[in-house]
Design a protein around this nucleic acid. Structure first.
Lengths: 193, 193
DNA sequence: CGGAATTCGACCATTATATTCGTAAAGTCT
DNA sequence: AGACTTTACGAATATAATGGTCGAATTCCG
């Protein structure tokens, strides 16, 4: 009982790396089991279905990302730095997990209601976070005193816009550059001069 | 007739990127077709099977690698540079195509006889190339006058050794470092001082 | 027009795969 | 040790995915 969670976590970790490489559909229980060092049937002792494993992985991944972003934000007192680092880390993570997240958007995979929920909650949180950074920046006089709600939403939309080519084309290398580019444009348009 | 080759190449290119991401097994005809902008059945007008497409991709990829390596070797007159660059480029390419090549080694996929043939020919060629560079280096006095055949084979084996963890673990980032490391060790043991 | 080249939807046969189940092995407690 | 619980897995199954075929439609081109 005590290390059932241990094994569960192990499975989640193993499954995570495979999902992130091949997405939901192309990942088989066989592979997950092998990567976790167990027989295929044994997995069902810990999870009732492939979807449940996927859900666990998504939840864990979301939590990790959230933690990482918090750390980044706390890392610098300068709102400008904060915003820059936040966006950079967020894009990098999404980039790494492109296959993984593609599974979420791909085809009929969107009928995973728990994903919709996570996604929605995440979007709202992200808007709030950016809004808050932006507000700080207004206070310090570094950002123009625009409506923070509108600006936050605009930025989130821009980031979402970056996801699309990120997940569908295979020209992944360009994304980092594109992100930097967008960041610069964003700042030149946002920073009070 | 004239742009049948055009379409064929297009299919090969499309299939190549998918194979390189997911390997032979996980890549479906449906995906290849979609990526090539054709219906699934239409693909069979140009290729008689999935294996045939795979073969075409492998051949093309091998040709590209060969060309790139030739260029690198011709690029520098210094045997030491040559060897270093050769190994670097070779490892980088194999690294990028890890999924792709994994398909070759995975499970029962090795009964693709044409792959065996390519592989064998490639290994022999590689030994000759390295041997030749090493001989140059002996002439210039930069390498110890060891038996070039044995040294070449040893190096090729070392490179092959690097492939294994390269293709099977997921800690891919470490490989570049590992390669550099090996290169340094190799040179410190090889370069006359 | 008329025939050849090209495309594709519908279909089939086979395979792959998620999940179940019965049972074996490994602990655990008394 | 023996009974009882937890954990593991091989074999079996039902279903979905997929490679490949075929004939009909569409486009090309003289």
């Amino acid at each position: 009982m005590v290390d059932k969670d241990q094994v569960r976590n192990n499975i989640i970790r193993a499954a995570g790396t495979i999902f992130s490489k091949f997405g939901f559909r192309k990942t088989t229980m066989e592979e997950i089991a092998r990567a976790a060092g167990k027989g295929k049937s044994s997995i069902y002792y810990y999870f009732s279905s492939k979807e449940e494993i996927f859900e666990a992985v998504v939840v864990k991944e979301a939590r990790t990302l959230k933690k990482e972003l918090s750390k980044v934000i706390a890392g610098s007192p300068d709102p400008l730095e904060k915003l820059r680092n936040y966006i950079l880390v967020r894009m990098k993570t999404f980039h790494q997990l492109s296959n993984f997240y593609r599974a979420i958007f791909d085809e009929g995979l969107s009928h995973f209601d728990f994903i919709e929920r996570i996604r929605e909650r995440y979007d709202k949180q992200e808007i709030l976070t950016i809004r808050s950074i932006f507000l700080e920046g207004i206070k310090t006089g570094q950002f123009k005193p625009e409506d923070p709600d509108l600006v936050a939403i605009a930025i989130v939309r821009a980031l979402k816009g970056l996801e699309i080519p990120l997940f569908w084309t295979h020209v992944n290398e360009d994304v980092d550059i594109a992100t930097e580019e967008i960041l610069n444009i964003l700042f030149y348009g946002i920073v009070k001069q």
